[in-house]
Design a binder for these strands. Sequence first.
DNA 1: TTTGATGATTATCA
DNA 2: TGATAATCATCAAA
Length: 398
Amino acid sequence: MLSADHLLTLCPLCFAVAAGLSIRGAQEEDPPDPQLMRLDNMLLAEGVAGPEKGGGSAAAAAAAVASGGTADNSIEHSDYRAKLTQIRQIYHTELEKYEQACNEFTTHVMNLLREQSRTRPISPKEIERMVGIIHRKFSSIQMQLKQSTCEAVMILRSRFLDARRKRRNFSKQATEILNEYFYSHLSNPYPSEEAKEELAKKCSITVSQGVGSTITVSQVSNWFGNKRIRYKKNIGKFQEEANLYAAKTAVNAAQAAAVAAQNSQANSPTTPNSGFQMKDEEYQLDSAESKNTLLTNMFTGSSGSYNLPNSGDMFLSMQSLNGDSYQGAQVGANVQSQVDTMRHVISQTAGYNDALGGNAMYSPHSLNGNGGWQDATTPSSVILPTEGPESVHSDTSN
DNA sequence: TTTGATGATTATCA
DNA sequence: TGATAATCATCAAA
C-alpha cells in the first residue's frame, strides 16, 4: 500500500497541490490579525488599498471638509491627491513585488524539498510547515509595508491638515467691527447665529486676506470665544481697549441720540434748542471733542440722574449705572449696551466707581461670581442705537 | 531669535 | 449643541 509520503515522492504535481492546499489552509486557519485589519481598514479608508477612487480624492475631500475647506486651498487638495496617488502606486508596486517574491520563494523551497524527497521521505506536514514559515515571513514583510504606508499617509495627512492652522490676522476693520460689537455687548457678548452671520458679512466687506477669502460664521464664533476667554482672564489688559471702544460707541450713541433729539425737537415747539437737554445743562454736539465732554459731564455733574428727553431708549436712571438694575418703563432694548458704554466713560472720568471697585469699572458687572457673563438685567435683545433696523442683534438665550 | 498676539483646534461640560 | 478652558501654531514686531 502506498503511503502519502510515497505518493508525494512519486508525483511532483501532488507536491504542488499539497503546497497549495497548505498555503490556503494556513491562510484560512490563521485568525485575522487585528493590527493587520486596522492597517487594511485604514489603507482602504485613505483610498490607498482597494479599488482606485480617483487617487484619494475622497480622502482629500474629507480632509477638506474637516478643515472647513473652501476654494482657497484647492491647490493644497490637488497636492495632497498627487502625493497620495504616489503613495498608492508605491504601495501596490511593492505589494506586487512581495507577492511575487513570496510565490517564487515558495516554489523554490518546494523544489528544494522535492529534491530532498529523493533522498529522504518528506511528510505533507513538513511541507505545510515550511510553506507556513515562508507565508508568515512574507506576511510580516507585508505588514511592515502596510505600516510604513500608513505612516506615510498619516504624515501626508497631518501636513495637509496642518495647513489649516496657517492663519492670517483679520483685517484691522474686521477686528474693529468685532471689537465694537463685543464691547458694546459686554454684558452679554454672545451673538446669535444671525448676529454672527451679520458680523461675518460686515467683516468680509472690509477684510482683505486674499482673493476669495472671507470671515466665516465659525471664525466669528472662534473670535468671540477667544475674546471672551481672554478678556475674562485679563480684564486689566483689555481695559484700555475697552475704554477706547466704549468711548467710540458712546460717541456714536450720543450722535444718534442727538440726531433723534434734533428730529424730535424740530417737530416740537416746546424744545426750541438743538442738542442734548440735560437736567441742569445743555450741550451742543458740534464736534467729537464736545461729545466726549458731554459724556464726561453727564456723569461728573451734580445731577443724580440724567434724562435725554425725546430720545426713546435713553431714559436711564443713575441707579442703573450701578450695575444693579436699570429702571423705567421706557427703558428700551438697547439700554444695556448703553449701560456698558456709559460705564466706560464713567471709568475714564473717575467719577463713578464706588459700586464696582478696583479696575473692575467696566466688566465685573458682566461677569458674575462664577465667572459667567450672565446678567439678570440683561435685556433679551440688544441693539446699538447707532445701528439701523438691519443691525446685529445679540441673543441672550445662551 | 524671542516674545506677545491671535486664529484655530480639542477636550470637557452642562 | 454651544460654551469654556487649555493648548497649539503662526504671525509680526522688537
